[in-house]
């Protein structure tokens, strides 16, 4: 009899504690989620860029989600140089064909994959980009070739809305 009573009491206390803990956890979530991107930030997730004035050999830098995006209209030499590189020479092997569907246009996040600085245009040992912060060298396809960065510069989702307009995001 008394054993039964103890068990029931244990169940009551366990249930109370468990239900209380679930509630406490449910209250914590809004406090965490409020720091995630809000509805107005999410709504700005895409941007359209007019590239009609960009001539070969030049780069346009635009802001997308608060980060610079490099839009480079590459010259034929740059394309050739990027395409002839052997995969085994790359730190992060990716084909240039996959990075630039339309070989003339290279669109990528202008953010060094090491610690987030913005690399400099037309600099470095591989005629591409060079990050001044810690000396990462990128080639004409924006791939990491030398230095501490682990990956190639990221290619965002983008599309040509028409011949002159790129929609990023």
């Amino acid at each position: 009899m008394s054993e039964k009573k103890t068990k029931r009491r244990d169940f009551l206390f366990t249930a109370t504690t468990a239900v209380g803990a679930v509630g406490a956890a449910a209250v914590v979530w809004p406090m965490i989620d409020q720091m995630n991107p809000d509805a107005s930030v999410k709504a700005l997730a895409s941007t359209e860029v007019d590239v009609s004035s960009l001539t070969p050999g030049n780069t346009l830098t635009v802001l997308w989600r608060g980060k610079p995006v490099f839009i480079r209209r590459r010259t034929q030499e740059e394309i050739d140089e990027a395409r002839k590189v052997k995969m085994e020479d790359l730190i992060h092997p990716e084909k240039d064909e996959d990075r630039a569907k339309n070989p003339e246009w290279l669109v990528m996040l202008g953010v060094c994959t090491h610690l987030g600085c913005v690399p400099l245009n037309d600099k470095g040992d591989y005629n591409g980009w060079f990050c001044p912060c810690h000396g990462s060298h990128y080639d004409t396809s924006g791939r990491i070739r030398k230095g501490p960065a682990p990956w190639n510069m990221e290619v965002p989702k983008y599309e040509f809305v028409n011949a002159n307009t790129i929609k990023i995001g």
Binding site: P30, M31, Q34, N36, D38, A39, S40
Partner: peptide, 13 residues
């Protein structure tokens, strides 16, 4: 108003 409309659970907080 931004808190009330856009921030996640902003209205609740």
């Amino acid at each position: 108003e931004h808190i009330m409309r856009d921030v996640n659970y902003g209205w609740l907080i």
